[in-house]
Simulated scan of single mutants.
Amino acid sequence: MLRRFIAWMLCAGLGATTAWAAPVQTAAAPSGGQLYTRNCSSCHGQRGDGGIGVPLALPSFQAGISDDYLRQTIRHGRPGRVMPAFPSLGADEVEAIVRHVRSWNKGPSVAYSKAPIAGNPVHGKQLFGQYCTACHGANGEGAKGTGVTFSRPRDLPIMAPALHNPGFLDAAPDAMIKATLMNGREGTPMQSYLKLGLKEKDIDDLVSYVRSFETQPLGSSATLVKTETPVIIRESPYDLNTTVERVKTAVTTNNFFYGRVQTLEYGMTPPANENPNQVIVYFCNISLLNQALAIDPRVGMFLPCRVSIFEKNGKVQVMSVNPKVLSQLFNNSELNQLCEQLEQSYTAIIEEATL
């Protein structure tokens, strides 16, 4: 230990030469496979065969994308379309994931120019309405459903992506969009537009129109509900037991059915040690439950609905998670309307109980 301390002092404090420096152990490079498993496989499949997300190993997908497209997609995600951004990953970790995903590529790598393509966006909009809206939506919002729903058709390996999305537009240069339109993507509904009878000039016009989405307001599929606070909280003028009964009543008058009351510590500590001044009221609305699960089964982690009631030093507080955080947490814009509806219901219940 003394020798190590002396060596450290020589290196750090006394400006030792290389001959005297203690050997430095460099950290092992991150494993792309491990990083992919941890961050990507649950949606894209362990072998890139897809699931909720795009099948990354699909040969036509690999042939049509660049390494930089993957980098930018990891960095920016697809706001509102389930694919999250990964700002916490270091540059070396992103590169490791890119290398792992590209290990499935059986053909040559492709790189695209970042130069803009000149076209007529007015004519491109006409062509978009004729050839693209059936899959990508009238305003490029993407296919309905974000891949998480129970009803997602499984006979197709990919759902039409949202083109009017800042993540896509940041990641895909004009040249890549043009190449996709010209070549199509075998194994998906995306056909070659040349084979559909369009000329290269028409494709340039389409690319120009898609790029014009950058200057237009975000569509609903790329927006998330904003919330000022993740928690709805009110102080009750009543004692804990009265407040609990008022919450139960407010639940039923707001079209939910009461489930049960239990302490916050139920199941986590022996019953004799549970704090009776911290309780949870559980409730549910089957119709809303089915809607939420059909949009995104992950909301099941937050169901059934619940309101927490705490008494401390004679003061009683009633609180719940603000459902609006679900839209941002799950990055699923299709939850927006439901989250806003639930936020209004939760607020009404809590305010009615504490009135």
Rank of each mutant, 00 (worst) to 15 (best):
Asn120Ala: 08
Pro189Trp: 03
Thr223Arg: 15
Ala19Glu: 11
Asn290Ala: 08
His44Asp: 00
Gln337Lys: 14
Thr354Leu: 01
Met9His: 13
Ala175Cys: 14
Lys199Gly: 15
Glu334Ile: 07
Tyr282Asn: 11
Phe302Cys: 06
Glu274Ser: 12
Ala16Gly: 10
Tyr131Cys: 10
Ser31Val: 04
Ser60Gln: 10
Val24Asp: 08
Gln126Asn: 15
Arg154Trp: 00
Ala348Ser: 15
Leu288Trp: 15
Ala96Cys: 05
Ile350His: 07
Glu274Asp: 04
Asn183Ala: 15
Gly77Tyr: 12
Val325Lys: 01
Ala85Pro: 07
Gly13Cys: 01
Pro157His: 07
Arg185Ser: 12
Gln126Met: 15
Val94Asn: 06
Ile295Phe: 08
His44Ala: 00
Cys135Thr: 12
Thr17Ala: 11
Gly259Trp: 10
Lys315Glu: 05
Thr223Met: 13
Ile233Val: 13
Val299Leu: 07
Ile6Asp: 02
Val207Ile: 10
Leu35Cys: 08
Ser333Gln: 03
Asn139Cys: 10
Ala7His: 02
Gln46His: 10
Tyr238Ser: 15
Leu169Tyr: 06
Leu163Lys: 04
Val101Asn: 08
Thr242His: 04
Gln344Ala: 08
His76Cys: 09
Gln344Gly: 03
Pro153Ala: 00
Ser66Phe: 13
Gly77Leu: 09
Ala294Lys: 14
Asn105Asp: 05
Leu355His: 06
Arg47Tyr: 12
Asp174Gly: 05
Arg75Trp: 00
Gly53Leu: 06
Lys114Ile: 10
Gly33Thr: 06
Val98Leu: 15
Ser31Gly: 09
Trp104Ile: 04
Tyr209Leu: 12
Leu2Trp: 07
Phe5His: 12
Tyr131Asn: 14
Ile97Gly: 05
Leu169Asn: 05
Val231Asp: 12
Asn39His: 12
Lys226Asp: 09
Lys324Met: 12
Phe330Leu: 09
Ile158Cys: 06
Leu264Cys: 06
Asp155Met: 03
Ile203Trp: 07
Val82Trp: 03
Leu326Phe: 11
Glu186Pro: 03
Ala21Met: 13
Arg38Leu: 08
Glu228Asp: 09
Tyr193Gly: 02
Trp104Phe: 10
Val244His: 03
Gly33His: 04
Leu70Thr: 14
Gly267Pro: 01
Asp170Asn: 13
Arg211Gly: 05
Lys195Phe: 11
Pro87Glu: 00
Ala272Pro: 00
Thr249Lys: 10
Leu288Asp: 15
Ser287His: 10
Gln72Trp: 00
Ser345Asn: 14
Val225Met: 00
